[in-house]
């Protein structure tokens, strides 16, 4: 994994919340989905994924349930809570502010 592909600190939470919007997903699927949506640019460091998921769960932004995976194994599925949706909105806003600011700086010079 090249350095430029590493996720910016704090953006992992945002990506997880965003990816979970359509419906419940297990950890690996979240990692796959991030990679797929970013056209292979963003790769989730998988060992960092679970601490992040558990943190989000502890903060009650996602909830987890055990279910059956597509390959018929028992897997833990995460889904957004109401608080998680709200959180996603604020995170998205602050991300947009940040990125447009960075964008502005890059274009100005």
């Amino acid at each position: 994994m090249s350095r430029s592909n590493e996720l910016l600190q704090g953006t992992l939470d945002l990506l997880i919340l965003k990816v979970l919007t359509p419906g419940p997903m297990h950890g690996l699927a979240i990692a796959d989905r991030v990679r797929q949506l970013s056209e292979d640019v963003l790769r989730v460091n998988q060992s960092a994924l679970y601490p992040a998921l558990h943190r989000l769960e502890h903060q009650a932004w996602v909830k987890a349930e055990w279910g059956e995976s597509e390959n018929n194994r028992r897997a833990k599925f995460y889904s957004l809570t109401r608080a998680g949706h709200a959180r996603l909105k604020t995170e998205e806003k602050s991300w947009e502010r940040l990125s447009s600011a960075v964008h502005g700086v890059l274009r100005s010079v």
């Binding site: 460091n45 998988q46 060992s47 960092a48 679970y50 601490p51 558990h54 943190r55 769960e57 502890h58």
Partner: peptide, 18 residues
């Protein structure tokens, strides 16, 4: 190899539960 350090992940996940 792809996953990374399983032990670290376990401990970090454990601590993140508070």
């Amino acid at each position: 190899a792809e996953f990374g350090d399983v032990n670290a992940a376990t401990e970090a996940a454990y601590e993140s539960r508070g």
